[in-house]
Write a protein that binds this DNA or RNA. Structure first.
Length: 427
RNA sequence: GGAGAGAUGGCAGAGUGGUUGAAUGCACUGGUCUUGAAAACCAGCAAGGAUGCAAGUCCUUCCAGGGUUCGAAUCCCUGUCUCUCCGCCA
């Protein structure tokens, strides 16, 4: 959501910024609507004032035992006109809101311009990408281990689901546990176990609604399945006015995520890279406006630290204007090296949403010593996607000599003594 | 699923048709006092919006949406949520 007064003050800045995302000039229509609405509103308020004043007079006259019939009739007349203005005002406000809530966040100045992912800019690399001669893809490794079963999953649920068992199921859980423990123990995050089903309001607050319904699953009673724990975690502060001392808030959660993947037909159809359901450890930070840039870097470090500890090579990129998401002002993607694909693939996305989501969900705070409230800044990042981390571990720790997979050192404490997954081991 | 109670400002909690945007307490802000602090005392303190150079004026909001009325936090209807008791249940 956008600050209407800021748009009034400097419409060109908004149009220029939106142009970087490929949008045509939006402010003329917005300003026209806004102007009309304010005119109607002023009119409406004047009538309301008259009604209020006269009603008070009636009260005074009646309390003195007088006859107020004449004024009462007068107010009845005002009410008819008023109803018309109120209706028009309501419609205009709704239209304005519809336009504003469908427009993406402004981009930070240092976001590189470009039409799509080809223009993203790499900012650093970590680790040496292993490039074995005949690297297998994760699903080949998983199936040879006999622990990754797409057929059964398809029988149960259709395409884009997987069933894993034995050591592989445990390895997935170990990854999640390790990530949570690291974020809570070393990075200062508070672990949260949130609802996975949320209302419209929550989805609106974090920007999934009203524009992106086709990406979501909805229950028969109208709740939405979260596509990321960002929704649950960020909306914790919806409709609240926080004290400065409460900030920053740092939440982490390990949850399933549900995505319809409409429009991604044909993409990543094999394996578990793109599923309707996957686990992700999410990080969400709620901070004062002057702290969000710094927090964005910190959060990205936290995600990178997970990959470093897992011994996985990765690179970090800044998304360009055309690739940056709806809510984000700036986004870093972290891409992990996958030998089986001979490529870096996204495993985390860390975004600074500035006050964009906070405005939508009315999340504010009161800076110490002031009376005014201000919108908070919200940030979210994967820390990291568990399914894709599993892919990375399989491909990077694969032992071609026996088809096994070594357990990374940091996961060993979670594996109950298993140091290597082996085919048909039943481990 | 059955029966009942409730939803008020940052928090707690009064308020059942007419200067109630809302008592009181806590928290918070400023001041007095104090070497400093605490305590005590005094004062201020809801949010959002329109209008105005400004001071200010005005409007809306007491869960949400309808309705009754000249006038609604207060009455009526619907919905949502919370709590209590009973039943069922991971």
């Amino acid at each position: 959501m956008h600050d209407l007064r800021a748009i009034r003050d400097n419409p060109q800045a908004f149009d220029d910024n939106w142009a970087r995302r490929g949008l045509s000039a939006q402010t003329p229509a917005i300003l026209a609507l806004d102007e009309e609405r304010r005119a109607v509103q002023t009119d409406m308020q004047e009538l309301q004032q008259q009604r209020n004043e006269k009603s008070k007079q009636i009260g005074q006259i009646k309390s003195q035992g007088g006859d107020a019939q004449a004024i009462m009739n007068e107010v009845s007349g005002i009410k008819e006109k008023l109803a018309d203005r109120e209706e028009r005002e309501r419609i205009l406000a709704e239209e304005l809101n519809a336009v504003l809530s469908a427009l993406p966040n402004l981009l930070a100045d240092d976001v590189p311009d470009g039409p799509d992912e080809s223009a993203n800019v790499e900012i650093r690399r970590n680790g040496e990408p292993p490039r074995p001669n005949a690297a297998l893809q994760h699903f080949e490794i998983g199936e040879k281990l006999g622990m990754m079963d797409f057929e059964t999953a398809a029988k149960l649920s259709g395409a884009r689901f997987v069933l894993m068992h034995s050591g592989l199921a445990r390895l997935e859980r170990a990854l999640a546990q390790f990530m949570l423990d690291t974020h809570t123990g070393e990075h200062g995050y508070t672990e949260v176990s949130p609802p996975l089903l949320v209302r419209d309001d929550a989805m609106y607050g974090t920007g999934q609604l009203p524009k992106f319904t086709e990406d979501l699953f909805q229950t028969t009673r109208g709740d939405w399945l979260i596509p990321t724990a960002e929704v649950s975690l960020t909306n914790i502060v919806a409709d609240r006015i926080l004290d400065t001392e409460e900030l920053p808030l740092r939440f982490t959660a390990w949850t399933p995520c549900f995505r319809s993947e409409a429009g991604s037909a044909g993409k990543d159809t094999r394996g578990i890279i793109r599923q309707h359901q996957f686990y992700k450890v999410e990080m969400v930070c709620i901070v004062a406006p002057d702290k969000s840039n710094e927090e964005h870097e910190r959060m990205t470090d936290c995600a990178e630290n997970i990959l470093k500890k897992l011994g996985l090579a990765f690179r970090t990129i800044t998304l360009c204007s055309g690739d940056t998401g709806f809510c984000a002002r700036k986004t870093y993607d972290i891409e992990v090296w996958l030998p089986g694909q001979n490529a870096y693939r996204e495993i985390s996305s860390c975004s600074n949403c500035w006050d964009f989501q906070a405005r939508r969900m009315k999340a504010r705070f009161r800076p110490k010593g002031t009376k005014e409230t201000q919108f908070l800044h919200t940030l979210n990042g994967s820390g990291v996607a568990v399914g894709r981390a599993l892919v990375a571990v399989l491909e990077n720790y694969h032992d071609p000599s026996d088809g096994g997979v070594f357990v990374p050192d940091v996961l060993k404490p979670y594996m109950g003594g298993i140091e290597k997954l082996l085919p048909a081991s039943g481990a």
